[in-house]
Structure formats: structure tokens, C-alpha cells
Design a protein around this nucleic acid. Structure first.
Length: 842
RNA sequence: GCGGGCGUGGCGGAAUGGUAGACGCCGGGGACUUAAAAUCCCCUGAGCUUUGCUCGUGCGGGUUCGAGUCCCGCCGCCCGCACCA
């Protein structure tokens, strides 16, 4: 090993080729070794790999390589979530076909990933926009249809009246279309739905079995599924009609002061027929977006219909019926009994429209007349002002009212879910065509499986708004598979969440003639470790869990849950650099590569003048605080970049990118290279302390990697490296150096291979085994004893391990510093934690 | 608005209820060098009357011999909210 520096620019590519040529990372489904399926969420091919991807894939790669060293057959695949809106946007802006744009991006990004040396099985690569993928998805969709998991119903979309097109939520800005600027309307369309609610209870119950999922993700899913129990009951209306409402708080029924219905509710529709004012109000509710956030943050508005509702338990009370914009037609019955005292939305509404706010729950009977402090009280208590319920607790009163409603026949206890069925229709080109035709005589008919895939037409004009499939001259015209008559194809495409709901199954098994082989898929599934962003905590993960259940439902796959362990990583962040534009005061942002960072500030390289350093935030193109992985791999080599991704920040938290940090990593690569150069296979002699450190580090680093606490493993490797550098030559030191090489092999594989070859190691490190731990060397025989007086540290003593309590007490009292702190006071108590601490209480 | 999370030196962070600040970065001092780079060594939470003492983990309370860690109440920031992926 004569070179004094490790040169990644020539070594990285050489080892990457060696791994490729040896097909090192191709997974063998028929292997008898224990299997490990390590998966990172596959990327959208936006054009360039983002540093966040690098972090995600580095974590998975370390785990995959580590598992391989521990003797597992590892499946670590990669592919592309390749359908979606950005391709259509690019097509519009750059006049390039979405497919061409997407495949070019895939080629670029694949090259970028290869440069980072990830141990990926590229033989299993999939792109969801390829007919060889989405054709199978169409077959599965038809299976779901045939087993009753697919249906069509009317549902609201954002409609841009100028562009005559459906908009995604992100295309609606402040209630207006992003291109046209027109006020967006809600419009109803007949759309396709997947019956995720069929599995609501099972999706909820399944969370209990996901022991290795973060509690926060499980809690988010639980809240999203939103099981609630309550009372559905009937109000008779003054116009002779009636309205069903649902309430989770039937105990507060005597606090009801009005009834509110959604704008789309039949009662509201009926009122609108006879009232232009009501009609105008309903129109107003239709303006604005369709998101829950917009609905809930909008000012609460209501329209008094003039109708009253008969209170079911109090013959003397007639409640006004309002149409209200905060009531959702999709949840419960689309109508609520409003109890302002004990529901915050009702409280705000009642305050605005001057409706009674009645207290029916209080801390005690004596508080029955206590006024409200500007907000509703939703907590527990006892019932007051509630006739027969007075004095009951909340849950007792709930049961009582439900029982009474059921016996008297005006209502019944009911379980309601917040979870809604999954609307999968998208009125767009770049997605999986929904494989159905519409026939005038036969209705909706699935395309026969032997005619799949239904492929997207290539000759489309995406430069104008609207759905190109809809206006294509020939594509949609076809014949009915059933009667042979004229029919038109469905022009909606599937939500891209459908594509990502089963890609991990296709990775595990990819026959040509069917979506997957059940037996082969089951040898790999569930995914042992899934890694991705927290932003997918609800939708993607819930849809994938649903899809897995749906496959079981149709008898295609016998897997309960898709992902056994889940890890959600933090984002990569960077400070921003900006200057105010003198004309309009808007900040102008600069890329880090244009900026010279100094110890107390930053200047623009172009003019040498100071520049403002902004907060550390998520990297984004608009703020230009992005770094390009290719550029940093060019400068520092793949291993330094990988090491940086693993160092310092715990993986679940945000990682602030810094130039100084990556330089430190690059220095450490060279430091290791020098240390490896000192390896001497023939060195003699034992260094017990170093040997202990070596084995303690092997054990701890293994635990850290398995727990994905890479930052801790990194810190321990730094410590061991420092100890090995300081040690005098010995057999122990040689073992330490060889061990460090193996410990860093999953993290810095190129450096490890290069040094391994120089040390005359056999084969590739990629195929080497993780070092064995010598259990006997894990325990020290001495320990540092902390001595406290009244809980404050006064001295530390080095003592032999395993001393009895009375000896530790005596040693502690023998300390001069401790005696000074006690200062002759009476000792009341002495607490001894063996091998750790003595606390003298005075 | 609803749901979820996070908060520790100049910075990233470490710490089974038991020595707060491991490890890294930045900064300071020194060695080597004609010089620089590289490398190596030492120092580096704040304050003070500096053998040592006091304060210190977003803020205010509480439990405990002992709280960054547990409990209650706030503040700030971040993520998700069903057509972004």
C-alpha cells in the first residue's frame, strides 16, 4: 500500500464495476439462507437525485450490506414511481412527451445512484409507467372489481371553469386555478372508488401487530381511520320531513340548540328549490377548495332555513335548522345536532349567530350555571340541565340516551368511521388507464384480461389543458367485449398511490404472465425493514396495507401486513442565502455553490459582497438551498458523502447539510486509509484494553446498526479509531485495524474494498462476514463510581466492579471532597446503586 | 381548524430516572515546515471571590434521595389533512 492518499475518483468506479461483474447484490429467491428484505421508498423520477434520497438509500444500503455480512440472503431492490403530474407539467412547459421526459430522468437518476455504490439488485428494477408493470396493475384492479372492492359514485373535484379541467389540490392556490387564475368550483363527477372502508376494522386491529412501527405513525393511522361510536337518530322537521343526524356525544342531547346540515344535504337542496337566498348560500359553499383544511379554517357560515326540528326528548323544544359550511356530507349522515357548550365549532357558530349556549356537563352539580370561558368544554364531568340525565357521568349518560332512543325507536347506537373510500379516478393522461369500457347496452364492462394491458396512446398533445385521453381522436373508441357493439374506453387513470401500493410485491417476484407468483413473493414478504419519509405516514402506508388485504381477499397473496418494520427518516436541510431585491423587496435566493461561507457570515462569490444567511430549512428548489449529489461525489467521493449522511444527526431527525461537515468526513476517509496502511499481519503481543474496546465496539455497532442508530455507530467507530491510532503495534492492534475495516464496510464500501485488497484480504469485503464478538472481552473489571452529596456530584472514584454496598459506602465516605461537602452534618440516608453511584443524603 | 412530532454548548448531537454535553464540526493555542497545505498534540457550556464554587437541557409548576428523562400547564418550530409524490 504505497499510495498515501485514497483516491475515490478512480477507486469508486472500479469497485462498483467489480460488484456488478460479480452480480453481488442479485437476490436469489430460492436461497436457503435466512432472508432479509430491505426496502427504501422508491423515488419519483423528477430528473435529479435529491440529497434526501441519498440519505434514505444510504441508510437502507448500510442495513442491506450489514445483513449480508451477517449471512442473510438480501433483497434490496430499486425502481421508479414514474407516473404523475410533474411529467405532464414538464410536457406542457418543455414540449416534450411525458414518457420521454420520464425515461430520460430515470436514466440520469440511475447513473447518479450507481455512483454512490448502493448494493442494489438492479435486475429487478421496475418503472410503474411501463406497460409491463401497469398492465398487471390493471389485472389486479379487475380482480378487485370482480370481488366487489371497486365501485363508482359521484364525488366532488376542483373544477377550473376557464381551462375546463380538473385540478389537483396543489394546483389550487387561494381558491383559484394556478394557471388560469379563475375561481375554482366544486363539481361532481362519476368516479372510481376502492372500498378501503371494507377493511377499516382490520386496518385498525392490524396496527397492534406492527411492533416495529413508530408509535406516532400508528397513532396517526388510528386517528385517520377514526373509529367512533355514537348515536344516529331522527329529528322530525316542521315541514313534515325528517333528518337523520349522527353524534358521538348523545349525552349532551339536552344542550342541543340547533341542527346543521351540509350544503349538499337533501334538506338543503329542498330548501334551495324554494329560496333564491338559500340557493345563493349553497353556491357560495361550493366556492373554494375541497380540502379538509380549507373547509375547517374557513369562516363558519350558516343559513337559517326557517325550518325547525322537534327535540326528541323535550316536547317543548323546537330547534332551528341551519345549512352550515362546516358540516361535511361525507362524514356520518351529513347533518349534526349542534351543542355549542361542548363542541368548539358549534360554539363559534352559535356565538356568531347568537344561538343559545347551554351547559349540560359540569365539574359538579353546583356548577350547573357556570358561564363558559370563551370556548366550548369538551372534557369529562357530570350531566346538568338535562332532565333525566342529571347527575350521570358522561359515559353513563351516553349509554342511557342510546338505550332510550333504541327502545323508543327514534335512533340507534352506531359505529362511524372517519376513513372514506379511496377515490382513485384521475382525469389525467400520465397514469395507469382504468381498464374498463362503457357500453350503451351492457354498461360498465371490464377489459378481458387477455387484452391487457390497456396502453396509453403515444400521440397526444399535452400542451393544452384537459385530459388528452378524453379528446384523443381514436383511442377511446372501441367495441364492447361482451356484446361487440360500440363502446368507449374509460378515460380516467388511476391515482399513482395505486402504483406504489404493490411495487414491493412485484420486486419480490416478477413473472411475465402475472403480477407476481404468490409462493415466491411470500418467501420475501413482509418487507423486513421499510425506510422512507414521515410525509407518507398515513396515505401511502395505509393504501399499501389496504392493497395487501385486498390481494388476500381475492385469494392472490397470503400476507397479513406488507411492512414488518417501518422507519421514518428526517429531511436534509440547509441554510438559505438571499438578498433583497431593491425594486420589490422580495428576497432573491442563491445556491450554496455561489456563496463563500466565512466564520462570521457569507459573501457572494460573484461580487464579494455580504449576503444574508437565512434559517435552516428543508432543501427546496424555490429557496435554492439545494446541493447536487453528483457535485459532492465529484469533490469528496461516494464514501465521504455516505459517511456524512450517517454521522451526527439521528436518522429520524432532520440533517443539516454543511460544507464543513462533509470536509470532516472526507478527512476521516483519509485518516482511516492511513490507519489501514499500518496493518501488520505479523505483529505480536497483546493489548488487553484495546482488545476489550474492539469487541465492545463490534457488539455495540451491531446493535446500533440493527436499531438504525447510525450516528451512534459512527461515534463508536471514531472512538475505536482514535484508540487504535494511539496504540503501540501488537497483534491486538492489527486485529483492531482489521475490525475497523469490517465495521465501516457497510458504510464506506469503496474504501473498505480498496484497503481489503491492499491487506491481501481474500475476495470482496462485500462478501465478507461481520466480525465475531468475544463475549469474555465485553466486561471491564473496573468502573467509575459517582459520589453525590444530596444529589450533587462531589467526587468520582475508580473502583473494582461488583463490590458490595457497604464497601462502596465506606469508599465514598472516605473521600476528602465528600467529607468537605458533608461538613459534619448528620447523614440521614445513603443510596447505593452498585457499580454506578453513591448518594449521601444529609 | 384537526391530528402527529420536536425543543440539550457557537453548530449537529450523546445520556436503562443515577457523573449533562460522549462523538463530530466550528473556534483558539502549539508542534512539524524556508513557507504553505496536509498531519499531530492541547484547550473549548456560562459565570465567579478559580485547591474550588454557583448556574445550566424552550418557559412555569410538580413527583423523587436524585429529573434532559416521569406528571400537569404554557411557548416556539416542523410535518400531515384524502387529486403533490
Amino acid at each position: 500500500m504505497s499510495e498515501t492518499r485514497f483516491d475515490p475518483s478512480q477507486a469508486d468506479g472500479r469497485w462498483q464495476r467489480a460488484w456488478d461483474e460479480g452480480a453481488c447484490f442479485e437476490a436469489d429467491s430460492s436461497s436457503t439462507k435466512p432472508k432479509a428484505y430491505v426496502l427504501e421508498m422508491f423515488p419519483y423520477p423528477s430528473g435529479r437525485i435529491h440529497i434526501g434520497h441519498v440519505r434514505n438509500y444510504t441508510m437502507g444500503d448500510v442495513l442491506a450490506r450489514y445483513k449480508r455480512m451477517r449471512g442473510h440472503e438480501v433483497l434490496h431492490p430499486m425502481g421508479w414511481d414514474a407516473f404523475g403530474m410533474p411529467a405532464e407539467n414538464a410536457a406542457m412547459e418543455q414540449k416534450v412527451h411525458p414518457g420521454a421526459w420520464t425515461y430520460q430522468n430515470i436514466a440520469n437518476m440511475k447513473a447518479q445512484l450507481k455512483r454512490l455504490g448502493f448494493a442494489l439488485d438492479w435486475s429487478r428494477e421496475v418503472a410503474t409507467c411501463d406497460p409491463s408493470y401497469y398492465g398487471h396493475e390493471q389485472a389486479l384492479f379487475i380482480d378487485f372489481y370482480e370481488s366487489g372492492l371497486v365501485y363508482r359514485k359521484e364525488s366532488a373535484v376542483n373544477w377550473d371553469p376557464v381551462d375546463q379541467t380538473v385540478l389537483a389540490n396543489e394546483q389550487v392556490i387561494d381558491g383559484r386555478g394556478w394557471r388560469s387564475g379563475a375561481l375554482v368550483e366544486k363539481r361532481k363527477l362519476s368516479q372510481w372508488f376502492l372500498k378501503i372502508t371494507h377493511f377499516a376494522q382490520d386496518l385498525l386491529d392490524g396496527l397492534d401487530d406492527l411492533k416495529n412501527w413508530p408509535d406516532k405513525v400508528k397513532l396517526m393511522q388510528e386517528n385517520w381511520i377514526g373509529k367512533s361510536t355514537g348515536l344516529q337518530f331522527r329529528f322530525d322537521l316542521s315541514d313534515g320531513d325528517h333528518v337523520d343526524v349522527y353524534s358521538t356525544r348523545p349525552d349532551t342531547i339536552f344542550g342541543a340548540s340547533f341542527v346543521a346540515v351540509a350544503a349538499d344535504h337533501p334538506v338543503a337542496q329542498k330548501v334551495a328549490e324554494g329560496s333564491a337566498e338559500a340557493q345563493a348560500f349553497i353556491e357560495k359553499c361550493r366556492e373554494g377548495g375541497t380540502t379538509a383544511e380549507e373547509l375547517e379554517t374557513a369562516e363558519k357560515l350558516g343559513f337559517d332555513t326557517g325550518i325547525t326540528a322537534q327535540h326528541p326528548l323535550d316536547p317543548a323544544r323546537q330547534l332551528p335548522v341551519y345549512i352550515a359550511n362546516f358540516v361535511l356530507m361525507d362524514y356520518g349522515t351529513g347533518a349534526v345536532m349542534a351543542v355549542p357548550g361542548h363542541d368548539q365549532r358549534d360554539f363559534e357558530f352559535a356565538t356568531k349567530y347568537d344561538l343559545p349556549i347551554i351547559r349540560v356537563v359540569a365539574a359538579s352539580a353546583g356548577d350547573a350555571a357556570k358561564p363558559f370561558d370563551g370556548e366550548a368544554e369538551t372534557g369529562d364531568g357530570i350531566l346538568v340541565n338535562s332532565g333525566p340525565l342529571d347527575g350521570m357521568g358522561v359515559s353513563e349518560a351516553k349509554a342511557f340516551v342510546i338505550g332510550r332512543a333504541e327502545s323508543e325507536g327514534w335512533g340507534e347506537g352506531k359505529t362511524v368511521w372517519r376513513l372514506r373510500d379511496w377515490g382513485v379516478s384521475r382525469q389525467r393522461y400520465w397514469g395507469t388507464p382504468i381498464p374498463f369500457v362503457h357500453c350503451d347496452t351492457c354498461g360498465v364492462v371490464p377489459v378481458p384480461k387477455d387484452q391487457l394491458p390497456v396502453t396509453l396512446p403515444e400521440d397526444v398533445d399535452v400542451s393544452i389543458p384537459g385530459n388528452p385521453l378524453e379528446r384523443h381522436p381514436t383511442w377511446k373508441h372501441t367495441s364492447c367485449p361482451k356484446c361487440g357493439g360500440k363502446a368507449v374506453r374509460e378515460t380516467d387513470t388511476l391515482d399513482t398511490f395505486a402504483d406504489s401500493s404493490w411495487y414491493f410485491i412485484r420486486f419480490a417476484s416478477q413473472p411475465k404472465d402475472k403480477p407476481f407468483d404468490a409462493a415466491e413473493a411470500a418467501t420475501w414478504l413482509p418487507v423486513d425493514q421499510y425506510i422512507g419519509g414521515i410525509e407518507h405516514a398515513i396515505l401511502h402506508l395505509l393504501y399499501a396495507r389496504f392493497w395487501t388485504r385486498a390481494l388476500k381477499h381475492v385469494g392472490k397473496l397470503d400476507v397479513a401486513e406488507p411492512f414488518a418494520s417501518l422507519f421514518t427518516q428526517g429531511m436534509v436541510t440547509h441554510e438559505t442565502y438571499s438578498r433583497r431585491n431593491e425594486e420589490n423587496g422580495q428576497p432573491v435566493y442563491f445556491n450554496p455553490s455561489e456563496v463563500e461561507r466565512t466564520s462570521d457570515g457569507a459573501t457572494l462569490k460573484a461580487d464579494g459582497q455580504p449576503i444574508e444567511i437565512g434559517r435552516v430549512i428543508k432543501m427546496s428548489k424555490s429557496k435554492k438551498n439545494v446541493v447536487d449529489p453528483d457535485a459532492i461525489v465529484d469533490s469528496y467521493g461516494a464514501d465521504a458523502v455516505r459517511w456524512f449522511m450517517l454521522s451526527d444527526s439521528p436518522p429520524e431527525r432532520d440533517l443539516p447539510w454543511s460544507e464543513a461537515g462533509i470536509e470532516g468526513c472526507a478527512r476521516f476517509v483519509q485518516r482511516l486509509w492511513r490507519l489501514f496502511g499500518q496493518y501488520d499481519a505479523g505483529a505480536q503481543g497483546e493489548d488487553k484494553a484495546l482488545a476489550r474496546k474492539v469487541h465492545q465496539t463490534i457488539a455495540a455497532a451491531a446493535g446500533d446498526i440493527e436499531g438504525l442508530s447510525f450516528n451512534k455507530a459512527v461515534a463508536r467507530i471514531y472512538e475505536l479509531t482514535a484508540a487504535a491510532e494511539k496504540a503501540k503495534p501488537s497483534a491486538s492492534r492489527s486485529e483492531a485495524i482489521r475490525t475497523i475495516l469490517l465495521l465501516i464496510a457497510p458504510m464506506m464500501p469503496h474504501l473498505a474494498e480498496e484497503a481489503w485488497a491492499a491487506m491481501s484480504g481474500t475476495g470482496l469485503v462485500a462478501e465478507a462476514a461481520w466480525p465475531e464478538v468475544d463475549e469474555a472481552l465485553l466486561v471491564d473489571d473496573e468502573t467509575t463510581l459517582a459520589v453525590q452529596v444530596k444529589g450533587k456530584l462531589r467526587d468520582t472514584l475508580t473502583v473494582a466492579k461488583g463490590l458490595p454496598k457497604d464497601q462502596l459506602e465506606a469508599l465514598a465516605l472516605g473521600s476528602e471532597k465528600v467529607q468537605r461537602a458533608i461538613d459534619g452534618a448528620d447523614i440521614r440516608k445513603i443510596i447505593v446503586v452498585p457499580d454506578r453511584l453513591v448518594n449521601i443524603v444529609i
